[in-house]
Design a protein around this nucleic acid. Structure first.
Lengths: 119, 119, 119, 119
DNA sequence: GTGGTCTAGACCACC
DNA sequence: GTGGTCTAGACCACA
């Protein structure tokens, strides 16, 4: 069985953060839908070959972000109304692009030149 | 005396990497010119309040990147033809922006919408 | 327990370089196989009676050379396809011999004479 | 004016050793002939952009090797009969090649294969 | 426990 | 004084 998330162990990006970002993305994309049940921490941990604590950390961050909700003894679920998540991701993405452009313009290239080079 | 590089000691970004990036940028900008001599490791270390080994690490990465050249007992110098460095930085930056855009479009927003939101 | 590498502490050749060369050689020889796990930096350091930083330096050079891959908190491993490493070493060696021969022929001795004197 | 010797400052090989080797080679080649006068240390130092002590060190090693002789107040000269120098260089070269071959054979390539790949 | 970064300070060869 | 190597030991994030 393929996992929902795929990890890059070589990346300097922490495993737990990769999991958070991917699940968040899948929710925003609608691949994971409201009320969908996530695998248990143990299950996910073993299927990813990762320490259960790492999954726990990821889930608790996702809960903090309002992406999922954990009902004790029931399991972990995608929240009902994840609409704002998508906007949040987009806004963050735009900000990051703006930041990149700002850095490049410092090298003497104009914003227009940058935009014209985008594929 | 002002230093060439300015460090953010609070940042999670490693000091040696900050130095590498800044010097690379200054070379790309032409602020540091071919054959310019960089401060000796000890000098730079003391003026930045940093351990000499940290500077050494930065310098050796810069040498690896082909930005500087170090002549033992002579000092460390900007390479003769750093023209490609600027292009390389820009190309990398453009690629990163493209990557970001690609990710965002997966969320259902078009490239045009993204570009229109850039400041 | 015997170590993978054996050091000559008297040699002028830096310890980290000895380690790099030996591990590279063992990979080329197939003694170290793809996906083999190398000892942790601390482990190797203590078994060699050497500072952990020295091992780290060696490992990071090996990673740079594409011989090993290091997964943070997981360990350090031989890369999947090290086939080209052997060829690379041999090619470098042949080039060096050619260079030596070229220098000697400048002294008036022919290539054939040189080859006939090899044991 | 071109110098007799040409230095590679990037090499890890010490400057004084480069000078020794090149002058020895030129003597063996007959480019520098018996009784030829070498530049004074000061002269050579300034024309190479090198510290006079470095030249002094090189000259004293050459004198030690029996390649040159220093007559105080007269100058420094190539010795009368440098014939053995050539043989010595060749022998050293052959030994080095043998050493290289020995190392390569450890990788599973035979001496014959190596020789067949030499250009 | 594992790798990553850093400090403090030492010793060396070379110039 | 300059770079190069190394030791000893600390702290951190991550798993």
């Amino acid at each position: 069985m393929n996992n929902i998330v795929s990890l890059d162990y070589q990346s300097r990006k922490p495993i737990f953060k990769q999991i958070v970002q991917q699940i968040t993305k899948f929710v925003a994309l609608g691949i994971l839908k409201p009320k969908d049940k996530l695998p248990s921490t143990r299950e996910m941990a073993s299927s990813l070959g990762v320490n259960p604590n790492t999954i726990r950390k990821a889930y608790s961050m996702l809960e903090n972000d309002g992406v999922i909700i954990t009902l004790s003894t029931k399991g972990t679920f995608i929240i009902d109304n994840p609409s704002k998540i998508k906007d949040k991701i987009i806004k963050t993405g735009i900000d990051e692009i703006n930041q990149k452009i700002k850095e490049l313009t410092k090298l003497g290239i104009t914003k227009e030149e940058i935009l014209s080079k985008l594929k």
